[in-house]
Amino acid sequence: MNLSFRTEARHGYAVEYSPFFPQRLATATSQHFGIAGCGTLIVLDITPKGLVLARALDWNDGLFDVTWSENNENILVTGSGDGSIQVWDIAQPKPAPIQVYKEHSKEVYSVDWSVTRNTNLLLSGSWDGQIKLWDIHQPKSLNTFQGHEHLVYSAIWSPHITGCFASASGDRTLRVWDVKKPYMAQVTIPAHDSEILTCDWSKYDQHLMITGAVDCSIRGWDLRQPKQHVFELKGHQYAVRRAKCSPFVASQIASCSYDFTVRLWDFKQPHPIETIEHHTEFICGLDWNLHIPGQIADCSWDEQVRVYSPQSIANTRT
């Protein structure tokens, strides 16, 4: 499979598969590379005829991240350049958010929906250096987590431990938090010598996390022994924009970069097992299909969303 969809004057920042439907994905996009203009949430269906537009929903500023609800197949959340968070119901005919939160003072670069016990909880990470915790049934945030000394690029829930999340920042640290203790991170790791743009949890080991940074490397961390990374993967030529652990194979990682490539890794090996070059601009969004082993989606500033199954990992499982 190798499908593509043109986002037409919208530059891709994030893509995420639906947790309910293997054939549906959402993309957060921005005009003018996110520097100015509006943004569009694009929902696509994978069909025998290719990628087909299901909904296109506009916001008055660029959209930088998207996450699906874990308890309603029609609800999505986006983070915007104006510091706001939008809650969308794609089953509603009205092309407007059903809720908008505005507490961050700068760009919201990361949103993530809780996958553990309380599936009404949402995280937002912002360039104002703060992370906020939300319940989408409440009118304002439940708490604000402060400690990072620079932009927050990523805030992501643990898939294993209820109430636990991690964040990656321009202050070069990876931090792990408990929602009950917003005043201080439980673990702080000086993970790279450059800004950290992405982090993710292993889906098979609650103690293992990965980070990707401007220094072009991906590193693995055992949170029980955080003084030294347990592996390092080098191959990208420019900053690693996103890195995500496979939901099917414990040692597999996919990463995308400002070097226009997606790379597939087995962290037991030092070099990429496959390099994919099908974009002509920065690749900012990347996700694994949770239902179909070996299928990946990505999006780029070249106005293309792509869905494909890399040869090196197709139909593999733990």
Rank of each mutant, 00 (worst) to 15 (best):
Q304N: 13
I296K: 00
W265L: 06
C216T: 15
R10I: 08
R10M: 15
A250I: 05
P270T: 04
Q146V: 10
D171N: 07
Y183R: 10
P310S: 05
G235C: 02
T7S: 11
G220T: 06
A14I: 02
C216M: 12
I210N: 00
A254T: 06
L63D: 08
F33C: 04
V108Q: 05
C38W: 10
E73C: 12
E232W: 02
W134E: 11
K244G: 07
I85L: 13
I196N: 02
I276A: 03
P270D: 02
S312E: 10
G212E: 01
F21L: 10
Q269G: 04
A185F: 12
I85S: 08
N2S: 12
I90C: 08
F33I: 01
F33M: 08
C284H: 06
Y258F: 02
H160N: 07
D58K: 12
D61A: 10
P293I: 08
G12E: 02
V176E: 01
R317I: 11
R242L: 07
A254S: 10
V115I: 15
C284D: 06
R6T: 14
P48I: 04
E232S: 11
A243Q: 03
E274G: 04
G212W: 03
G37W: 13
I131Y: 12
A28R: 01
S312V: 09
I189M: 03
Q146E: 15
P93R: 14
N74Y: 15
T119C: 14
V100I: 07
A213K: 10
D222C: 09
C284L: 08
Q206I: 11
I46T: 03
R175G: 11
V66R: 07
A26S: 10
V108N: 05
E73Q: 14
A56Q: 15
M184S: 14
K203S: 00
I85F: 09
V179L: 15
E103L: 07
P190F: 06
D61Y: 11
L51K: 01
F64E: 05
I283L: 01
R55D: 10
W177S: 06
V100G: 01
K203V: 00
I90V: 13
G163Q: 04
I75F: 13
V77R: 06
G129C: 04
G294M: 00
W221I: 04
I189F: 00
W288P: 01
T280H: 06
M184H: 12
D135N: 13
A9T: 13
G37K: 09
P93Y: 12
E8L: 11
Q237P: 01
D266T: 07
I136N: 15
L233G: 00
P182C: 07
H150R: 13
I273T: 05
E274Y: 05
G220D: 07
A26P: 05
N60T: 14
H271D: 08
T67D: 11
K102S: 06
D112E: 09
V77I: 15
S257Q: 09
K227N: 09
A185N: 12
W113F: 09
V230W: 06
P93G: 12
T47F: 10
V77L: 15
S110V: 11
P190W: 03
C245S: 08
